[in-house]
């Protein structure tokens, strides 16, 4: 039953909510219960910015079953303004034109579907800024 799991992750997936350590200020995505930097357990919820740049990437030609129809797709690590890094597909650009350092912005997209009858899984992908 994926729906409980899915619903639980909505704040991170839909709104890019992260946790900022109130003691040392480090921002964690996804949110954590203890700060690996200073061991503080107090956090405030912050929304990540949507702009960033590509740190590294690949073009996936053989994908997992759920993504098989989308190959080839670019997948990369994006460093957002402020320094938080996350993994995201890079779309709306021919994969061969993606480059390290490319400015991108995160946009709300469908990631995959749990089969024909299951839930639809949304999140963010990076598009050229």
């Amino acid at each position: 039953m994926p729906s409980a799991n899915y619903t639980r992750e909505i704040p991170q997936r839909y709104r890019l909510e992260a946790s900022r350590c109130v003691k040392c200020g480090q921002v964690h995505y996804p949110p954590r219960l203890i700060c690996p930097g200073c061991r503080s357990r107090q956090f405030e919820t912050v929304a990540l910015p949507s702009g960033g740049k590509v740190v590294t990437y690949t073009i996936i030609s053989v994908g997992p079953s759920d993504f098989a129809a989308e190959v080839p797709y670019a997948l990369g690590i994006v460093e957002l303004e402020g320094g938080v890094r996350l993994m995201a597909q890079i779309v709306d650009v021919p994969p061969e034109k993606v480059s390290i350092g490319m400015p991108v912005t995160l946009e709300f997209r469908k990631l995959y579907e749990e089969g024909k009858a299951g839930i639809i899984c949304y999140g963010h992908k990076a598009v050229p800024a």
Binding site: A69, Q89, V91, E107, F108, R109, K110, I120
Partner: peptide
């Protein structure tokens, strides 16, 4: 629409 685009994703970006 690409396979990752539906009425919901278009709505979210337009609404933002």
């Amino acid at each position: 629409p690409a396979p990752d685009t539906d009425s919901v994703t278009l709505s979210v970006t337009a609404a933002r």
